[in-house]
Design a protein around this nucleic acid. Structure first.
Lengths: 364, 364
DNA sequence: GCTTGATATGACACCGGTTACCAAATGGAA
DNA sequence: TTCCATTTGGTAACCGGTGTCATATCAAGC
């Protein structure tokens, strides 16, 4: 062979690695250390890190080997400064159901696992007029990489406008198509509610009521109208006096159920707009000395963890909240990477039959 | 007056402010802009920001006025890079009760409000051998400002060792005195459990059982031993067969309760180590066709939101979890600022009497 | 009036990456 | 073999703050 001795790639790499190994103990490595040992420039290392195509394969291999040897990971703070945006992903929420929130958190965390991104929580109060300014200053100060917006924050167009102006990526989670496929996760709440209606109809209920969520949530509308549609399939309707308005919370759910119980015509089945209100409904039924499901059947929505902890276990419409969170996180990352999804990502709810809804008692 | 004209402070400030105001629209201001308008160096502005005493009052006033005029806020990313640590506060938890976790999150968020600090979530699985390394690399990469460690993570001395080595501040929340007052928040779980015991004894219960939390949690021990102490005050004891081992989760609580129900001697009252297990106990009691509290009284621990959502409402020992979170956040900030608390901060639990425990039915 | 020491301020390098721009090396076509 | 286009690598500046250290200012003390 006529190899030039000092250009033997294998030997070169072995040398570099030996040097690097000797350095190991000396605290945390920086891009400069990598460059030094690989005998290339900072910039080349940066190219390797960012998968730039402008690096010779051999160089790339060498640099990668040294990075691995030193266990180097680029410093997010420095990167954030140079890039002009941080590695923070904010979850902005104003959701009355804590169960929903935790579940979604977990999902987002799942989706962010093994990345440099960190989830930061931004609970807000949409009723508070300061909310908007607080969020704005958070954005200006921290330059978050992106925001995940579950309902009902996802429906605030003014907020979206602001995000656009500040060039912040976001993913909206909503029950209606509010945005482009790259920027939203859709749930078909209406269809889920229709399933709930079909279930109750098939059990033979006629006096059916609905505890509706707050007007400020699109999902509350969707769930109601889907429910009505489902009832209509069996020739039933939802008269106004069978709708009790509530606020997606335990307390309002409880009060709404009380109103239904003491109304002229007591329903034999109630569809609550979310599990939180259904939980309140349970208590109202019990306080009235009635039984679930013998006297009143109850169906919820969301399938939050509490559903399975109630007794009798709550029949509910399952929304895969955690999976939605995961999908939202991934979508945000994809969006930043420039990969658009083929179509809108949506999740179909599905009824989970447990024990809280059975056929109505005969007679009256 | 013999004032030198161009040294008139008021005029000087007015000039500077006018210049600054004209600049306003030009996007976000940086420390350089402030320095330019105030006609001082970057460093002086930095001093003002950091409340250094080495600034002449007049200069300070001028700089502050311009900062206010431009709405300047220092960039946390740049600060983080220069300071060598980020403004992230991590909550590291491995808690089987989601309710506990959300509540504490809210508290920490409360304590961090209006600061530059951001809460990041680090759920871990202590059983996973990777947990330690993952956390370590999080620390090395992100250089968090500090960590908040609720039980049972707070009890991991090996982890604490690592934090010390990496010079990361932390606050531990635990039921025993594990650390110095500046580094921990203490809860007197044993005392709370004793209150539960006294309550049950005063109601006249004799056949009293305990659903105990996992061995890996100090709190489980504390709660058990405190409970035993409380029983002893009334001359009662807790025989081994009246203790059912569980894991702080709904499912294990349910199973533990089933074991107690079908044991030779069925208890008339049960003290569950946390609300999550108490919720499971509810279901077990109902499944067995028994009533709460008529057949079996139940007392929980924590007073998580679910306690008030059950029916009958759960009598439980209230731990002010949210307040604890807030206190932990503040303590961490104080610690960094060099302010040590006078003594250890502790929270005394208190029994909250609701409906799930009454006097046992007469006869047998 | 001149030290002296305390107090204020500024110049400059640096944190650890990225980007813009330029120089050098490589390779294929003329 | 020359030359230009294309890769590839290097340098310097920059992101927006903070640390170090030198210098300027100023009142008090002699």
């Amino acid at each position: 062979m006529t190899d030039i001795p000092d250009a033997d790639p294998a030997a070169e790499m072995a040398d570099a690695l030996r040097d690097a190994a000797a350095f190991r103990h000396t605290g945390r490595a920086t891009i400069n250390d990598i460059a030094r040992f690989a005998k290339v420039s900072k910039k080349t290392v940066s190219r390797v890190i960012n998968d730039s195509p402008l690096v010779k394969p051999r160089t790339r291999t060498l640099v990668k080997a040294i990075i691995a040897e030193l266990g180097f990971t680029p410093d997010p703070r420095a990167r954030a400064l140079a890039l002009g945006r941080s590695f923070l992903i904010g979850m902005v929420y104003d959701n009355p159901s804590p169960q929903y929130v935790v579940n979604m958190q977990r999902g987002i965390l799942d989706g962010l696992e093994d990345t440099d991104f960190q989830l930061v929580l931004r609970p807000v109060n949409r009723a508070d007029s300061n909310y908007w300014h607080r969020l704005r200053s958070f954005i200006q100060q921290h330059k978050p990489f992106g925001l995940i917006l579950p309902p009902s924050v996802s429906e605030d167009e003014e907020l979206i406008e602001m995000l656009r102006a500040h060039d912040v990526d976001y993913v909206r989670i909503a029950s209606v198509e509010l945005d482009t496929p790259a920027r939203m996760i859709r749930t078909h709440d209406a269809e889920g509610a229709a399933q709930a209606a079909r279930h109750l109809c098939s059990l033979g209920h006629v006096a059916i009521a609905h505890i509706q969520g707050p007007e400020t949530f699109r999902s509350a509308h969707e769930r109601r109208s889907g429910f009505i549609r489902g009832l209509a399939e069996s020739g039933r309707s939802l008269p106004d006096e069978m709708v009790a308005q509530a606020g997606y919370t335990f307390d309002t759910g409880l009060q709404a159920m009380e109103r239904l119980i003491y109304a002229k015509r007591r329903p034999t089945a109630v569809f609550a707009g979310n599990d939180e209100m259904a939980t309140g409904a349970y208590v109202a039924v019990r306080k009235a000395g009635l039984r679930i499901p013998e006297d009143i059947s109850i169906v919820g929505f969301d399938d939050t963890p509490i559903a399975g902890r109630l007794w009798p276990a709550l029949t509910t419409v399952r929304l895969p909240i955690r999976e939605m969170g995961r999908a939202a996180a991934k979508l945000l990352l994809d969006q930043a990477a420039g990969n658009a999804p083929a179509g809108i990502i949506s999740f179909a709810p599905e009824i989970v039959v447990r024990e809280s809804a059975t056929a109505p008692a005969k007679a009256g």
